[in-house]
């Protein structure tokens, strides 16, 4: 893949090393001349010095038809313009913007940049999910935060332990896509019986997540 990294500070060095390991083609654009020299020397790659929100700089960097562009400036407006130019003028397939102001995640989406990442937004999301769900191992939001993949472990006092998948309370729609029963990986059918210690991978709509987790973690006595 051809990956362009526009702007950014310390994280650029890390990303370069990571992407080089997986043999991606890299184009690095940065305004800081000293930092460019450092990046170029330590990673042995070409780095373009300049403001990536200028079309002639993007032109020099030959980003045309790149697979991915990542805009990492600390200023959200710069990243917006870089991503829009990359997509509209240089036909870059995917443009990803980091944003400092978490409110800009949804603003960028409305302005045509679907991949905006805000570290404070991600942290807030993670904390919120972790605090509502006990025993939750991991939770991953996809498709604009509409779909959630939840990973959770079944305790021995859980009412679903010993139950077949088809007999679980289905007042909310969800799908147990996979059961991990060390060392086995089971793709369950309706008559698959859930056991204590099973790790379930559940796919559902994000708004139903807390109620579905509540169902799956209901204690046996409550039944």
């Amino acid at each position: 893949m051809k990956i362009v990294i526009a702007g950014g500070n310390i994280e650029v060095d890390y990303l370069i090393k990571m992407f080089l390991k997986s043999n991606h083609d890299l184009v690095i654009i940065n305004e800081n001349r000293d930092y460019c020299e450092y990046l170029s020397e330590t990673n042995n790659i070409a780095v373009i010095v300049g403001d990536p929100s200028k079309t002639y700089v993007l032109d020099d960097a030959q980003i045309i038809n790149a697979d991915v562009l990542i805009a990492l400036s600390a200023r959200d407006a710069d990243n917006l313009v870089v991503c829009q130019l990359a997509k509209r003028v240089f036909h870059v397939k995917r443009a990803i913007a980091s944003v400092s102001n978490p409110k800009n995640v949804s603003i960028f989406m409305k302005l045509g940049i679907n991949n905006a990442i805000s570290s404070s937004h991600l942290i807030a999301q993670t904390i919120e999910r972790l605090s509502i769900i006990e025993n939750l191992v991991r939770s991953l939001l996809i498709e604009d935060e509409k779909i959630v993949i939840t990973e959770l472990v079944i305790n021995d006092d859980s009412y679903v332990a010993g139950k077949a998948v088809k007999d679980i309370d289905s007042s909310f729609r969800f799908n147990i896509s996979c059961i991990f029963r060390d060392p086995e990986v089971i793709i369950p059918k309706g008559d698959t019986v859930i056991q204590t210690g099973d790790k379930l991978i559940v796919v559902s709509s994000a708004i139903d997540q807390s109620r579905i987790v509540e169902i799956l973690q209901r204690k046996r006595d409550n039944e």
Binding site: S53, R75, D76, A77, D78, L80, V81, I107, K110, L111
Partner: peptide, 16 residues
């Protein structure tokens, strides 16, 4: 004095 800020504010005004 910043073109990128100008573009962002103008786009927000227009599209949102």
């Amino acid at each position: 004095d910043d073109d990128n800020i100008n573009i962002m504010v103008a786009e927000i005004s227009a599209m949102i």
